[in-house]
Amino acid sequence: MASTIRVRATSSGDTTEVQALIQHPMDSGFVKNAAGALIPPHFIQQVTFEHGGKPVFVADWGPAVSKDPYVKFSFKGGKKGDELKISWVDNKGVSDSSTAKIQ
């Protein structure tokens, strides 16, 4: 299975900018399907970005985050070639993780 996580991490000397796109339905639990039944909530709750074994960014998400969520942040201390670990877990306990090299 292909990874659900797409990450681009670019270093500009001092800081590293990270952009992540995750494939996930992010169902809020308020939307009805064609038959009129509520689609149960299914959304990512926590995304963790780690560099050098330490978290550099933690996202706690509710169902109001858009489908196929996107997030951007930057941190200090990353170098080109370093690995960035990204992992997420949703409200059903499903999870995925991936690593990206800082460019």
């Binding site: 858009s66 997030v71 951007k72 942040f73 941190f75």
Partner: peptide, 22 residues
């Protein structure tokens, strides 16, 4: 539910975030 997203910013991470909400 009002809260959409909450981000932890450890020391060394820029206090800046972009995302997409419903």
């Amino acid at each position: 539910n009002a809260l959409a997203a909450s981000y932890t910013i450890p020391a060394g991470t820029m206090p800046s975030v972009a995302n997409r909400l419903k």
